[in-house]
Design a protein around this nucleic acid. Structure first.
Lengths: 165, 165
DNA sequence: CTCAGTGCAAACCTTTTGCAATAGT
DNA sequence: ACTATTGCAAAAGGTTTGCACTGAG
């Protein structure tokens, strides 16, 4: 079992987190769980595992990548797809797209919307706190569009990968 | 044959465009052809048809959409995929991604890089002349990244679609 | 108890690859 | 002629769907 995998097959207990053997009142995860619950979604061990994986990773991951982080047998890949979709719908995660079209998800850090710089060779990811949401909203509204959303991803070759090549 | 389809199976002639029955010294297409040629790519009737389709459409299209614009039998879908990839490599088209991960391509209007606002219901597209390329480059370089590129797409529901719903 | 969520299998859609035939240059 | 490009067929990759079963509220 890889060190960063998450094992949720532990005995039950009272509170939300101790049952997973995690000493974690991680505000990100807590907030996420609350949001899920408020949106009427059910809290399952599979979903908790996925959220946990997203917190640990701290970077956008595809459904397959999230699935790979889970302790083998935690849940089916299909469930990851379905849950991530739900998570996005209720604003718990933020959707992004890789250059090759793969969808990736990362936890919404509270209210703050952000973007990423990704190495297209090794996948290294850096957070980019730069966003033109307001300007884009303005343009969108000027055309009468509503329910605006945007995708912005920055790609490049990181110094390490460039060294090797 | 739909009115906006492009038929290239016409008799040969001397110049680049008259052979297609098109009275077109369209600078966009001309520039594109020159770029292709300069990059060492070959000018085939399939590629000319694709470029033409892109000019007529004036909006980003997926490989399948480009293929659908071509007169039936002009070329195989696989060829469209391969050519668009080449076009992008030499800077003749610009790559974008839809919310669902589909790759889309649009002609690079000369040197100007731009983005799009797309209705996620009907596909209507508006050009967005707003870009933070410079700021993004700066961030990328600050992390030591090179060969930077970015994807930015704005999505929403257009007024017409909203009316119906 | 009820319906949302899950697993499994299979379908689907988009994109990529292999190889022999074709056609620019 | 030389080699990029094409078509066809097949595989690959990522995502979605159908259905019966399970489990959270």
């Amino acid at each position: 079992m890889a060190i960063d995998q998450v094992d949720y097959d532990l005995p039950n207990s009272k509170n939300l987190w101790s049952m997973y053997g995690l000493n974690m009142s991680n505000s990100l995860v807590d907030k996420s769980l609350v949001k899920l619950s408020q949106a009427g979604l059910r809290l399952t061990k599979q979903r908790r595992a996925m959220l946990e994986a997203l917190v640990i990773a701290e970077k956008p991951m595809s459904a397959e990548e999230v699935h790979a982080k889970l302790y083998s047998g935690t849940c089916d890949l299909v469930t990851v797809y379905r849950s991530l979709e739900q998570f996005e719908r209720v604003g718990v995660v933020q959707l992004g797209v890789r250059e090759n079209g793969t969808k990736v998800y990362c936890l919404s850090h509270g209210l703050d919307h952000h973007h990423h710089l990704t190495c297209r060779i090794c996948g290294r990811t850096e957070r980019v706190d730069l966003c033109m949401a307001e300007e884009l909203e303005k343009v969108g509204r000027s055309y009468g569009f509503t329910e605006l959303s945007h995708v912005m991803e920055l790609f490049g070759a990181c110094p390490e990968c460039k060294k090797e090549a």
